[in-house]
Structures are given as C-alpha cells and as structure tokens.
C-alpha cells in the first residue's frame, strides 16, 4: 500500500470527445447519476456505470476508458439520453468512446464480423441458403440482393471499414 499508483491523464481528451458528433455536451455533466440509476444494464452489471465513464473522460483517463471492456455493455436504449437533465446525450458519448476505441483496434470481434458480412452481402448476418429456400416455400418474395461492389466503394476511406477489409 506504500506505492502510489499514478493515473495517466490526458487533459485534452475531454475536448477531443466534445468535438465529435454526439459528444458535444460532455462538459455539461454535473454527476447527478440519473443515467446510472435509470440504466437497465447497470441494474445487472457489476461494472457498467455511465456516470463513472463520463467522469473518467472529464478527468482525461483516456487509456482506462478506451481499453475498458465495460464500454461495450451499453445496450443503446437511450434511456440515459432521454432523462439526462443536462442534455449530455450519454449514449452518444458512449458511442463516441467506442468509435475511438475501435480506431485503436479495440472493438469486439462481433463488430468486425458484421462489417465483413455487410461488405460481402449487404446483410449484417450471413443468411443461410436454407432460409432463402424457406422464404420461397412460405410464399415470401425473393430477398433483395446487396450490391457488394457499390457498398464497398461507398465505404472506402472509412477508418474501421478499411481496417476490417485490410485484415481479411
């Protein structure tokens, strides 16, 4: 207990987040905790606390925030956003943080798989042939096809997508 741990801090981090679409109101947070007390995930998770994440960003704890697994637990239900008395748009701040984490290659595999699937077929999931056949037998019209070439071309230059494509 004698050794003091120093927290690495980046004083510019809060401004970096505030400049991104959805993060604009970050500095308004006055730590009332409405987001956390109304969060359905926080109700059952031992670790996910949106108020804490917001405070850590304000303190500049960039690495701790972006490398934390709990960042990915948010269900994007937007209850926090709707109830925040300071209009922080908490869920959007979380999304900004996830985007920044993804830029550092920290996104869970699930998102990379969905991105690859969208670029291949247009659909986020790989729909099995049996499902397509079943559509026919139940009288549903054929599924519209994705235009893979056009999709990939229009997503060119988007950081995360280029990453996924490069990593294939």
């Amino acid at each position: 207990m004698n050794e003091r741990e120093t927290v690495k801090s980046d004083p510019q981090f809060k401004y970096e987040v505030s400049k991104m679409h959805g993060g604009e109101n970050l500095l308004r947070c006055f730590q009332c905790g409405t987001c956390t007390s109304d969060c359905p995930i926080a109700k059952f998770s031992e670790t996910y606390r949106p108020r804490q994440i917001i405070r850590m960003v304000q303190f500049g704890m960039k690495d701790d925030v972006l490398k934390s697994d709990t960042l990915w637990l948010c269900a994007s239900c937007f209850t926090c956003t709707d109830r925040c008395p300071q209009d922080v748009e908490v869920a959007s701040v979380i999304r900004v943080l996830r985007n920044l984490a993804a830029q550092q290659g920290l996104a869970p595999q699930m998102f990379k798989d969905q991105c690859a699937s969208i670029m291949e077929s247009g659909y986020a999931y790989r729909i099995p042939e049996s499902r397509l056949k079943k559509r026919e037998s139940t009288g549903l019209p054929p599924l519209p096809k994705g235009n893979a070439e056009s999709i990939c071309k229009s997503l060119k230059g988007v950081d995360f997508v280029d990453h996924v494509q490069g990593g294939k």
């Binding site: 999304r95 900004v96 985007n99 993804a102 969905q114 995360f160």
Partner: peptide, 8 residues
Amino acid sequence: LDPVSHEA
C-alpha cells in the same frame, strides 16, 4: 456498425 464507426 454505429458503435464502431458512426461514419459507416
């Protein structure tokens, strides 16, 4: 893809 890339 919004969680990983708002732009995408």
